[in-house]
């Protein structure tokens, strides 16, 4: 278990909990959230500066030692995702990118076809590409073949806190795909992050569940422990599930039996 290392894009990733920085009640708590979560990979979004309002830059709140993973949110097709990824890299904050191509406004489900196209282009340009996707096996294979560093299937629609609703499909990806499978979106509680890790996910990406918790800083720590526990459980090999009861205590030598002997 000591050698249980997650390597993505040639980098050793110190925490299997990735966190997003959206929707926090105040940006000033983000440094403490990151510290308590122990997360190293942190997602951010790229947006136009609004010159009419005094805005803060998210980079001011993210420690230097973190790996910044800009997303391509706002992209509705591959071309827009590629444009945003190139701009994000020009900031000089590294070459990790989370591809997110969405044109469905109600459920925010990713467009796998456009995501594959964007991945093909960006891998050739030297990006470390982590695509957000619908958990479809064939598309996961296409993403792997295109050179994605990981695949990031959703657990449930973004921001819903519904949990690992796609469990059976994510399991199939974990079984069949030889690159890290990271559950992104929908995870609402630490137990659900733990569940994803128990079935063998390489990591989980959590944002809304932490950001909208009553105490986001404490919740970050709860997620950190859950992810560690789930990973340890996966590596330990969970016991078989059985239909009927099987006593844990010996079935011989009962008190009543002593009397009848």
């Amino acid at each position: 278990m000591m050698d249980d290392k997650l390597i993505i894009g040639g980098r050793y990733i110190t925490s299997r909990l990735f966190i997003g920085t959206g929707k926090f009640p105040a940006n000033r708590i983000i440094p403490d959230v990151i510290k308590n979560s122990k997360a190293q990979v942190i997602t951010v979004a790229l947006r136009r500066i609004d010159f009419d309002s005094d805005e803060e830059n998210m980079l001011n709140y993210i420690p230097e030692e973190c790996i910044l993973m800009p997303n391509t949110s706002g992209a509705r097709n591959a071309e827009e995702a590629v444009r945003i990824a190139r701009l994000a890299r020009a900031s000089g904050c590294g070459n990790f990118v989370k591809i997110e191509v969405i044109s469905d406004n109600r459920y925010l489900l990713p467009d796998n076809r456009e995501t594959v196209k964007a991945t093909e282009i960006l891998v050739k340009e030297g990006f470390v590409v982590l695509p957000y996707m619908n958990p479809d096996l064939m598309d996961a294979k296409r993403l792997r073949d295109a050179g994605a560093a990981a695949v990031m299937p959703l657990g449930a629609p973004i921001g819903t806190n519904k949990g690992l609703k796609t469990k059976e499909l994510v399991k199939i990806l974990i079984d069949e795909i030889d690159i890290p499978v990271i559950v992104d979106a929908g995870i609402g509680k630490p137990s659900e992050a733990c569940e994803a890790m128990e079935i063998g996910a390489a990591a989980v990406l959590v944002n809304t569940a932490i950001a909208t918790a009553g105490d986001p800083i404490a919740m970050a720590a709860a997620f950190s422990k859950a992810v560690e526990a789930g990973r340890m459980a996966f590596l330990s090999g969970t016991g078989a599930v059985k239909e009927y009861a099987e006593a844990s205590s010996p079935l011989t030598g009962f008190l009543s039996a002593w009397e009848s002997e």
Binding site: R47, I49, N57, L68
Partner: peptide
């Protein structure tokens, strides 16, 4: 001209 900055995102 587009001038952009990083904001919170997931």
């Amino acid at each position: 001209l587009e001038i952009l900055r990083f904001v919170g995102g997931g």
